[in-house]
Design a protein around this nucleic acid. Structure first.
Lengths: 217, 217
DNA sequence: CGGCACCTTGACTGGTTGGTCAGGTCTGCT
DNA sequence: AGCAGACCTGACCAACCAGTCAAGGTGCCG
């Protein structure tokens, strides 16, 4: 047999390659998330996407290069979500949409979030440069915006960094600690619970920094 | 040479044993936190506490048994801290002392927190029973207390679970994501920053759930 | 059809790791 | 002193893992 590629039809050679790479990346994301970089094996990833191990090495030269690609892909998604933190609108809208988006990401990209958390916890050996460039500049922009809101009296005077950390921590917790949450919940959160959690997180944080949402109270 | 045991004086045989075990556990906690279970090697732990690898196996039969002991020790500390969530006093005092204690733990037991996070992220293969017994009963107790506060009108109506998760997430973030925070901060947080972060976290959460602290506003 | 570039894979290898063990050392007791 | 049991450790081993390779397959172009 050949062109194992899965259950794919025949696309162009390039698109076939993309599909295979994506399948490997998807499998690798789950395995790296569940086992960590050191605990993950190329064999486990190969089994997970139904390819022989040697085939993985054809597409990705080494385990580390594969891992790097997984992390880079996650960071891209993270950056896109970061755009939902509008710097133009009102704090109410900006923060609510940002928090809601991050909660959604935690639900839809649990494994990606875990890989990111693992990477940072282990000292970010692979993505230190991302932290120092992209993440730092993004953060500084938002800190400036929040400071302006504070100066305008729209937000209580707080250090914006502690607020951002709280948002990151709380939203990502629903992905990274999903197992703990599901244990306490006797099963996965349902739609209503996700909506409730998102709403509660928004409310506590907005009230906490002195924003009275729902103007007509 | 013998009785390498470090720079210890000669204590009783039993206390010597305890000291050695503690030294191994301390080293193991750091290595497991930084490398994960799969990425950690017995050799690295041995080097870290200046003992030959074979000696580790004299005190701990296997890598997994050593890891289990590390996690159990962390859970004990976690449980002690949980007691600072008083179920008798006012919500203001109970939550403030609990949050402050958890922030302090994040600062003083960064590696323990990371090991715990790793364990939960990987599906809690070792400590699932702890989650289902100790953590669940602790949580249910506090949920009941918070519900009572809500019924008494002392706290805004919210699902207590989302509040607890927010507290856990935010406080533990300062340990688990310390590397990211320190990168953005251009260095470790100093005493004033830790105090400020703790204060801000307390304020946002208490205000967020409708508690007006500092009664005389 | 012939040739070429790309893809697939079973079998192999060099290096690492968890764990073992035999033999040595030290301590406390009689 | 002499002995027993706890403690220490260098050397070793079987298992495993990332990465290699050569042989073979497949589609596409002229």
């Amino acid at each position: 047999m050949a062109q194992t590629g899965g259950a794919e039809k025949s696309g162009s050679r390039a698109s076939m390659r993309e599909e295979t790479e994506r399948a490997i990346l998807d499998a690798a994301e789950v395995v790296f998330a569940e086992k960590g970089f050191g605990g993950a094996t190329m064999q486990a990833i190969a089994d997970s996407c139904g390819l022989p191990k040697a085939n993985l090495h054809y597409y990705f030269a080494s385990k580390e290069k594969l891992y790097r690609r997984v992390v880079e892909r996650i960071f891209t998604i993270w950056l896109e979500a970061a755009d939902s933190f509008e710097t133009e609108g009102s704090p109410d809208v900006a923060l609510r949409s940002y928090i809601a988006r991050k909660m959604q990401l935690s639900r839809e990209h649990r494994y990606g979030s875990k890989v990111w958390a693992n990477e940072v916890m282990h000292g970010a050996p692979i993505i230190q440069d991302y932290l120092e460039t992209n993440l730092r500049s993004w953060t500084e922009t938002r800190v400036t915006v929040i400071r302006r809101w504070i100066d305008e009296g729209r937000v209580r005077p707080i250090d914006p960094r502690w607020l951002l950390y709280m948002i990151w921590a709380t939203t990502q917790h629903y992905a990274d600690f999903a197992h703990q949450i599901e244990t306490l919940n006797h099963g996965p959160l349902d739609d209503a619970q996700w909506a409730g959690a998102t709403e509660t997180v928004c409310d506590i944080i907005l009230r906490g920094i002195g924003i009275d949402s729902d103007p007509p109270a």
